[in-house]
Simulated scan of single mutants.
Amino acid sequence: MKIFIATIFMLMTITSFGQYDMEENEKDTIPKAQKTSTFELQKNISVGSSLNLLLGNYTFVYLAPQIGYDIKPKINIGLQGMYQYTRINYSGYVEYANVFGGGIYARYRPIEKLILETSVNLYRIKYGANNTTNTFKLNANSWLAGIGYARPLGEKAFANFLISYDILGHENNPEPIIFSINKFNLYYKFCFILYPFN
């Protein structure tokens, strides 16, 4: 009799388990807000670059690519790199500098055309003269905080102009200077930002 009752309970348990639909339960327990597709995540990815170019006795090449992600509708964080080449010809005497750098940034757009941005960067600078092997290298860093103007370029892109101040005040900060007086320097950057998956 005990075996019979135990068998009945076991069959009832198996039957009850068979009625449980895992897929239906998953649909019921995951809120719609959490069901985010890969495409929806990709829409928050931004890519961009700054590019300055000046040729002649004073040659200046500046390239700063970046990739970021909108963690909130108005907040973008990401990584950026930087390469800069400067060459100055003083009537045959030539000085040059190669700079490699990069860092992290955070950008906030409280309104459509206003940008608040901060970035922390590290640089490796190599100086030389007259194409000789007599070069020297040094490291520099910066913590830039700035304000800028954003101009929309359609629905997927915008251009911005940013003026920043280096909180660390490193004397060898290689970023382009727009204003300088008594070691008070303001730096500028033109940048084009694109949301390729938007």
Results as ranks from 00 to 15, higher is better:
I3V: 11
T7W: 03
I8P: 03
M10S: 12
M10H: 02
Y20G: 05
Y20I: 15
M22Q: 12
N25S: 13
N25T: 09
S37K: 06
S37E: 06
T38S: 06
L41T: 06
I45N: 06
I45E: 02
S50P: 07
Y58P: 01
T59W: 06
V61T: 13
Y62L: 02
L63V: 15
Q66C: 01
I67Y: 01
Y69R: 03
P73D: 13
G78D: 07
G78P: 01
M82W: 01
M82P: 00
M82C: 07
Y83S: 11
Y85H: 15
I88Y: 08
I88F: 09
N89G: 04
N89A: 03
Y96R: 10
A97Y: 06
G101Q: 08
G103M: 08
I104L: 15
Y105E: 05
I111V: 15
K113V: 07
E117I: 01
V120Y: 15
R124S: 13
T132W: 08
T132P: 05
F136K: 15
K137Q: 13
L138I: 11
L144R: 06
A145E: 00
A145C: 07
K156C: 00
L162G: 03
I163S: 04
I167K: 09
I167N: 09
L168G: 08
E171D: 14
N173R: 04
P176K: 05
I177G: 03
I177W: 01
S180P: 00
I181G: 04
N185W: 06
Y187N: 03
Y188H: 13
I193S: 05
I193P: 00
L194N: 09
P196S: 07
F197W: 12
F197Y: 13
